[in-house]
Design a binder for these strands. Sequence first.
DNA 1: TAGATTGTTAATCGATTAACAATC
DNA 2: TAGATTGTTAATCGATTAACAATC
Lengths: 216, 216
Amino acid sequence: MSETIKKRLGKVPSIRRLPLYLDRLIDCKNKGITIVTSSELAKEMGMLPIVVKKDLQLVEPPTKKRAGYLVDGTIDAIQSFLDWHQPYSAVLIGVGNLGSALLGYHGFNGINFIGAFDIDKAKIGQSIHGVPVHDLNHFSSFATKKKIDIVILATPASVAQETVNKISMSPIKAIWNFTPAKLHVLPHIALQREDLSAGLAELCAKIKHNKQQSFF
Amino acid sequence: MSETIKKRLGKVPSIRRLPLYLDRLIDCKNKGITIVTSSELAKEMGMLPIVVKKDLQLVEPPTKKRAGYLVDGTIDAIQSFLDWHQPYSAVLIGVGNLGSALLGYHGFNGINFIGAFDIDKAKIGQSIHGVPVHDLNHFSSFATKKKIDIVILATPASVAQETVNKISMSPIKAIWNFTPAKLHVLPHIALQREDLSAGLAELCAKIKHNKQQSFF
DNA sequence: TAGATTGTTAATCGATTAACAATC
DNA sequence: TAGATTGTTAATCGATTAACAATC
């Protein structure tokens, strides 16, 4: 990603925290709370109020005469910022363990699965968590018939790039890459890599550090 | 996490990148390459050589007379740093979609699942991806019989904290939290939150940004 | 008014990147 | 030697945090 794009995109750490605020605000709404302050949100979430203020500023939330944020309006502002009002249509490529898990995971606010793809004849034709599995070779014809926003890639890393090459002529907007592979794509396709091993490494470093201190 | 711990832990971004280097180095090893330079690694991974140098410095890798890093020794150094020589024994709590996926995901280098727990009678007694599912109420007796290093938490967010409260008297070392809940634990338990929504938010912000530019 | 709030500007902190010395 | 490397120190950049002004 070039420098210019990075700057225009906004502050990535703040963007990544937006779903957390959304969760909390929806909680508030369900409880009938209509106004919430940065201190209240911060306390619930174990953060500093200034972080909440700075993060929310990104989405320009409505405030009630400096008495706090309007819950409904702030939910709306976050969803507008992320374009989450209409869910993105998504397909999964690679119906392995991780892939089929992602199909069944309902924790995503903004995604609607309209299909899955694999090259394994045994999987093609099946339905996983209600999503039909198609032959990857039929991807491009599928893509001309149905609008695909996001491709979630969960193939083996060894075939990740060739898979991307196969599909990148179709009019997709983004690839969410769950493989460890470094991918090269055309510049109009947004790319996001999700790396579970990174979290595990951080956790293991914390465990090791704790071990080196003595608690008992 | 207190300031002191953060400093002692080392540079988190570097730690999170270590698994990527490990992957590449194992690739090299399989190809029979015995020495690799920071520039070579950087090029393959789409990074700057200085980043590779700084990151690897963290694990104090063996170098061959300033001609590059010894592949075998560097693999070893990373694994030592993360304590990945022996896999950690792990259990999963919450055998939902995400949870059962994690049980079947083999992309983790350092983890060995020895059991799973749930409160759903329909799941208890089953075996998911070869891992037996136990009654969560039997957790503490299980933990006295078998050493548990890492608890992977994939329950609904609404019961995450009470689940943690139930198990935190057992001698576990870490909780890897896949729920959106903010958890409070005793200080000797390492805590790592994995937030898939954060990645999705980042991706959506990139898509929106791309849309605002005109490509055609 | 007084107290608490957001919004904004400034200061601090840490991560990334650049430059270069030492070495083979 | 010459060229390329790691290791290290310095500079830059951006994110976090603090301070405070403006407002109700």
